[in-house]
């Protein structure tokens, strides 16, 4: 029909823009990933240098560090999300909107702003360390040799700081899908389970948890993917002590103009992400049956 064709033309501006700013760059990236970097010169061709480099122990280790940090982040997001999602389901609509506002509004706050806020809290001169100094805890620890003479509690510039900072950033991405799943559960199911004498733990294990699985899988996938690709939080909160794949990629491009290696690493990152999405689809299908 005529209207159908007219409607399809409305897609054109977006598709044309994407062709230039999305598809073309990614194709260029793919081509570059098979290039060769020699004496600061990139030559195109079909070389696997970049991919081979990825499997060198140094870089493979960084990849697994990134992987496990993302797993930790996903795990802690999950643990913190459940109470919030359960509360949102229990309260009146008005309170629910307030909680929703509280959950979403940080999401709309710049990551940089939020990470620098954590520096004020966790840093060596941060609030917690000032407090620890004030009550003498740090002196005790220093005497015991547990922390160095000039440092405070090691709250950032390590994996802990990175995980904490990222959980703070991505928590909403976990809360919302879980809440969406939970709100699809008919309240009468829970009520009748209660009626039949189920305890809170039994209720959670047998009813709430299994029924929330689609949301859990969606949230975990999202948080994991986003964590794998995050650059700024590991840099700010990790303070050179934590190295992740996005940091390697950025360094290769910005400092060394080593496009082939950086591109190959990016492709490997994309493959990891696509694989995660694939696994997540399989899991979603298995919980639906």
């Amino acid at each position: 029909m005529k209207a159908n064709k007219r409607s399809m033309t409305l897609l054109l501006p977006a598709l044309v823009l994407y062709l230039i700013t999305f598809t073309a760059p990614l194709v260029v990236l793919l081509v570059l990933s098979f290039g060769r970097f020699d004496k600061s010169i990139t030559t195109l061709g079909f070389h696997l240098d970049g991919y081979i480099k990825f499997f060198e122990p140094t870089y493979l280790r960084v990849f697994f560090d990134t992987f496990f940090i993302s797993v930790y982040i996903t795990f802690f997001c999950l643990i913190l999300s459940f109470p919030v999602a359960i509360l949102m389901r229990r309260v009146q609509p008005f309170m629910k909107n307030i909680i929703l506002f509280c959950v979403i509004s940080p999401l709309l706050t710049s990551i940089i702003v939020r990470n620098s806020a954590w520096m004020l809290v966790l840093g060596n001169q941060g609030i917690i360390n000032q407090f620890a100094d004030y009550i003498g805890l740090n002196d005790v620890l220093r005497d015991m040799g547990l922390i160095s003479r000039f440092a405070g509690l090691p709250l950032m510039n390590n994996v802990f700081g990175v995980v904490l900072g990222t959980v703070h950033v991505y928590l909403p991405f976990m809360v919302l899908p879980i809440y969406a799943s939970l709100s699809a559960i008919n309240p009468s199911i829970e009520e009748s389970a209660r009626n039949l004498g189920a305890s809170s733990m039994q209720l959670f294990r047998n009813i709430t948890w299994p029924l929330s699985l689609p949301g859990v899988i969606a949230g975990c996938t999202l948080v994991f993917i986003l964590s794998m690709g995050l650059y700024v939080t590991p840099v700010i909160m990790g303070g050179n002590k934590v190295v992740t794949i996005p940091m390697i990629i950025t360094g290769l491009v910005r400092d060394r103009y080593n496009w082939p290696t950086a591109s190959a690493f990016s492709v490997m990152l994309l493959i990891t992400i696509l694989f995660t999405v694939y696994v997540s689809r399989l899991l979603q299908r298995s919980v639906k049956v």
Binding site: L11, A14, L15, Y18, I20, T21, F22, A24, P25, L26, V28, L29, L32, L222, I225, L226, M228, G229, L230, Y231, P246, I249, T250, V253, W259, A262, S263, S266, L269, L270, I273, V277
Partner: peptide, 24 residues
């Protein structure tokens, strides 16, 4: 498929998009 394509920049790591756009 077109819909998935149009929302793909959301899940593509922005670091990858950033360096690719830098190259362009």
């Amino acid at each position: 498929a077109v819909f998935s394509y149009l929302i793909a920049p959301m899940v593509l790591p922005h670091i990858v998009l950033g360096m690719a756009l830098f190259r362009i």
